[in-house]
């Protein structure tokens, strides 16, 4: 149902199916990730879902020692930090996600511009199984 609305709920339903989906304006062709129900360029409401290819480049990142409660509950801490960043997809738009696969004890060696591949992170939160988008070096 939510998928009909081109909303965040629809986006995360696709993430649960391990798909990274944006929306494309059928009127002017502009691509949006995360999705939009309304084109911010031409204001058309004629949208369709488009799956991203999963390749991109790291545009900005940080290695966080003091995260929000949800990340603390997932086991992250000052001694076990996590990396989060913004990845620009080869299709053009960019998205925030957790970044895996780097040696976080040497953040100065992580390079902006590193080619990245999409992955998905499964995490048990209480009784719920959650899926998040992530990226790792290609």
């Amino acid at each position: 149902m939510s998928k009909d609305l081109f909303s965040a709920a629809g986006f995360y339903e696709f993430v649960d199916e391990k798909k990274l989906m944006g929306t494309k304006c059928k009127s002017c062709g502009e691509l949006f990730l995360p999705p939009r129900p309304l084109c911010s360029s031409c204001h058309s409401e004629d949208m369709e879902w488009v799956e991203m290819g999963g390749k991109g480049k790291l545009e900005a990142f940080t290695v966080t020692l003091y995260g929000p409660t949800r990340m603390v509950e997932a086991g992250y801490s000052a001694k076990n930090p996590y990396c989060v960043g913004i990845v620009r997809m080869d299709e053009g738009p960019a998205i925030s996600a957790q970044i895996l696969g780097f040696d976080l004890s040497k953040p100065e060696e992580i390079k902006v511009g590193t080619p990245m591949s999409l992955t998905f992170i499964d995490r048990k939160e209480g009784e719920e199984e959650k899926t998040y988008i992530g990226f790792e070096p290609a």
């Binding site: 965040a8 995360p34 900005a60 990142f61 940080t62 966080t64 003091y66 995260g67 929000p68 949800r70 990340m71 992250y76 996590y82 989060v84 960043g85 913004i86 998205i95 925030s96 996600a97 957790q98 998040y132 988008i133």
Partner: peptide
């Protein structure tokens, strides 16, 4: 889309 990924405020400006 930002909080969910694990961004804090210092984290956003760090990025």
């Amino acid at each position: 889309y930002e909080n969910v990924a694990g961004f804090t405020f210092p984290g956003l400006y760090a990025a």
